[in-house]
Amino acid sequence: MPEYKLQRFRGGWAVAVYKGGKRLSRRQLECRDAAGAAAEFGRVVEDAQRPVDPTVRTIWEGYIAAKVGRRIAENMGWTGKAVLAFFGDRKPAEITEKLCQAYTAERRAAKRGSKQQQDRFAAKGRAVPIGVTNGTIRTELNQLRAALLWAEKANMIARAPAIEMPSAPQARERHLTRPEFDRLLDTAETPHLRLYLLLAISTAGRNAALLELTWDRVDFERGLVFLGPRHSLRPQKGRATVPMTNTLRAALANALAHRRTEHVIEWGGEPVKSVRTALGKAAKRAGLPNLTPHMLRHTAACWLAEAGRPMTEIAAFLGHADDLITQRVYARFSPSHLRQTADALEVGRARTVR
């Protein structure tokens, strides 16, 4: 049986669930004073220990509550619109391979865009785009699987069902050349997008890490950018600590002088939650269709490989736990990749010269 503990958390109180000495989850309590938190803690534990047969909706909402304050909780608020419309009232035991395939088929047939966007297509006599991509469907089902596995660990359900996924989309090979990036930078009309682009290409950071970056993690004295928690002993996946380039240092110094929030990427006195619209418009002006924030991280990694940097260094720059995935994706961009192996196959006079 899990063990429940009342703990201090973010200036208030939280209930934490442990099993075998390992914390499984933590949920913020509403009461801020000790007495009120203790009473609320008792009610939460009583409810948690009461035998239940939760629906997917209950599990999904519980998982979001356990991850409050993290980006996954915000993302699942959006993906939940599709997932809960289909799975929400079902029990985990009802989820089968066939049901997952039915969800995939329904999402592939779904109309894309908002009602207003669909109406605009119809008014122009154009067909409304149909079909959500496999990548989006896999994201939705992966989040469902994560919530169900969490429920199993929290003893809400006996066992999380297997989730059938559509095939993974082919990896995007496209990355920007240096002239293309320069063109993109020239078309960035707002300061926050220009800074975002310089930050993305100079740190190879993930989109979420860049948007969440705060000034306390920018160290001008040592010339470092901490994409993850500055003093964490367990770095977050994909969030490395990287040196500033000279160009980035100058851009950051200018942004710091004009800052209005604690976030590095800001606009109108507010942190920026997404750059997709601004980036899409700039990419269109630059003649670079289908540009995504992740493509900038991919571009930075490709440039490092093309410069002949060791895969271990590139892995560290990207925040990979080891260089296995780095080798698999980026080694082929290195000018020295398989060069000695190819030399062993040299024939004729060229072979004797060597």
Results as ranks from 00 to 15, higher is better:
174 R>T: 07
195 L>M: 09
175 H>R: 10
140 E>V: 12
156 M>G: 11
72 I>N: 01
137 I>M: 04
71 R>C: 10
118 Q>A: 07
161 P>W: 12
76 M>A: 03
179 P>H: 08
101 Q>W: 04
59 I>G: 00
166 P>Y: 08
167 S>P: 08
124 K>N: 12
178 R>N: 01
173 E>A: 12
159 R>P: 05
171 A>F: 07
193 L>W: 06
130 I>V: 15
67 K>Q: 11
127 A>K: 07
182 D>M: 04
82 A>R: 03
173 E>H: 05
166 P>S: 09
79 T>C: 02
166 P>M: 10
191 P>G: 11
82 A>N: 11
104 T>W: 01
170 Q>R: 14
93 A>E: 14
96 T>H: 12
119 D>Q: 15
150 W>G: 00
136 T>H: 05
110 A>D: 10
64 I>E: 02
138 R>V: 14
104 T>N: 01
136 T>G: 02
60 W>L: 00
199 L>A: 13
153 K>M: 14
114 S>D: 08
106 E>S: 13
116 Q>K: 13
118 Q>K: 10
174 R>M: 06
84 L>E: 04
157 I>V: 15
182 D>Y: 03
114 S>A: 07
136 T>R: 09
95 I>G: 00
84 L>P: 00
110 A>V: 13
138 R>L: 07
166 P>G: 06
196 Y>K: 01
140 E>N: 08
161 P>Q: 13
115 K>E: 11
175 H>Q: 03
184 L>E: 10
115 K>L: 12
159 R>T: 13
142 N>K: 13
138 R>K: 14
121 F>E: 08
122 A>Y: 13
190 T>Y: 11
65 A>Q: 11
117 Q>G: 07
136 T>Y: 09
202 S>H: 09
93 A>C: 08
86 F>Q: 06
97 E>F: 11
203 T>S: 07
98 K>T: 12
195 L>K: 01
189 E>W: 07
96 T>S: 15
90 R>W: 11
90 R>Y: 15
74 E>S: 09
157 I>C: 01
153 K>Q: 15
86 F>K: 04
94 E>N: 03
61 E>K: 01
164 E>I: 02
86 F>D: 04
107 R>M: 12
147 A>R: 01
72 I>V: 14
87 F>N: 00
144 L>H: 03
111 K>G: 06
126 R>K: 15
134 N>C: 02
193 L>A: 02
73 A>E: 14
163 I>C: 04
171 A>C: 05
128 V>I: 15
160 A>F: 08
198 L>T: 08
101 Q>C: 05
186 D>P: 00
97 E>W: 10
118 Q>T: 06
198 L>N: 09
92 P>G: 06
181 F>R: 02
87 F>T: 00
106 E>L: 15
126 R>L: 13
98 K>E: 15
125 G>Q: 05
126 R>Y: 09
147 A>F: 07
104 T>S: 04
189 E>R: 14
101 Q>T: 03
137 I>L: 08
59 I>W: 03
142 N>W: 01
174 R>N: 02
186 D>K: 13
147 A>H: 04
96 T>G: 07
59 I>V: 14
93 A>I: 11
102 A>N: 03
86 F>C: 09
155 N>Q: 14
168 A>E: 13
202 S>N: 10
68 V>M: 12
